[in-house]
């Protein structure tokens, strides 16, 4: 039985009459990496701020490692590291000085602070830059320094808000691998929020889909696909030489097909069952050349599209 370290119950937050978070219920287990996935403005940052006791909930409760975030924020902040989405450092100080300051605010000082700062700077790959002022750091370096800054307090939980924004693709991969490694090595629970699903998919044990203040679904990716698409809708993609309106009309007549669309020379067909033979037959009958035909079960990509583009509510 996994033991929850973050317990959110009926969490609600109103902003000027608008409901930003709507009865959120969520448990996050010790040692897991949880991805809070949702479009911009879904209320992810609001949830995170409430977790840290930096914003007061309108209703509901949050327990982090047994402490109430609203009434005991100091204890929560002692064991929780937070990397904000727009992380900033004191630009006229060096990376090392910035880290030491955070360490001292957490009651770690002297030699111990210095040693652990040096070690963390090595881990995040900023050994060369530690005596340089953070004003000249690139976005990726700042983000890595941010990770060191979060880790220096030796937290049980780290919360990363949009950690990959503004970093180049290579940097993103390195950064996420680092998070994954640190989490697994030290048993740190990670909650990360993102609107970029591929990154979340890559390192998370579980994800939660969070749209308009509601948690639409949670679980690992397979579970979610099953839960959301119990009507067994599938996607078929076909690469065809010449797509005509005639062909599309023809395809729509096939039983089971719900929707046909195309982009470039790709046909995208949504269907409730696997009707690839009928599709192939139809394309050839219309004189088209079929180069590729693939059948896809729903992944996180489709789930994401389904919710964020269609804006469908799952009640």
């Amino acid at each position: 039985m996994p033991e929850p370290i973050i317990e959110i119950k009926d969490l609600t937050k109103d902003y000027e009459g608008k409901r930003a978070v709507d009865h959120l219920n969520l448990n996050i287990n010790k040692g897991e990496i949880f991805g809070l996935l949702g479009p911009n403005g879904a209320g992810k940052t609001t949830v995170i701020l409430m977790l840290l006791g930096l914003s007061e909930p309108t209703g509901g409760s949050i327990k982090i490692s047994g402490y109430d975030s609203t009434t005991e924020p100091l204890k929560v902040k002692k064991i929780t590291g937070y990397l904000p989405d727009q992380v900033g450092f004191y630009e006229n100080r060096t990376g090392l000085e910035n880290l030491l300051y955070t360490a001292r605010l957490n009651g770690i000082s002297g030699k111990r602070a210095y040693e652990s700062a040096e070690k963390l700077l090595d881990i995040v790959g900023l050994r060369e830059a530690k005596y340089k002022k953070t004003g000249i750091y690139s976005k990726g370096m700042k983000q890595r320094l941010g990770l060191a800054d979060v880790l220096i307090k030796e937290p049980e939980i780290i919360i990363l808000d949009e950690p990959t924004i503004g970093i180049d693709p290579k940097g993103i991969n390195e950064f996420l691998d680092l998070i994954r490694k640190l989490s697994k090595d030290k048993g740190i629970t990670v909650l990360l929020s993102s609107h970029l699903l591929h990154q979340v998919q890559k390192i998370c044990d579980r994800v939660g889909l969070f749209v308009d203040g509601r948690l639409l679904a949670e679980g690992n990716i397979d579970e979610m696909a099953e839960k959301l698409f119990n009507n067994k809708e599938i996607a078929i993609k076909a690469q065809v030489s010449n797509i005509t309106q005639d062909l599309i009309d023809d395809l729509k007549k096939i039983e089971g097909i719900r929707k046909v669309s195309y982009s470039g020379d790709w046909l995208i067909i949504k269907s409730i069952e696997n009707v690839t033979p009928a599709i192939a037959k139809s394309i050839i009958a219309k004189g088209g050349s079929l180069y590729q035909l693939s059948y896809e079960k729903y992944g996180l990509d489709e789930i994401y599209q389904y919710y964020f583009e269609g804006g469908v509510r799952h009640d």
Binding site: F89, Y90, N106
Partner: peptide
């Protein structure tokens, strides 16, 4: 504006 406020205030200190 520099993004240091949220970082510092998430340390175990009263606001």
């Amino acid at each position: 504006n520099r993004g240091t406020l949220s970082r510092v205030i998430s340390q175990p200190i009263p606001r």
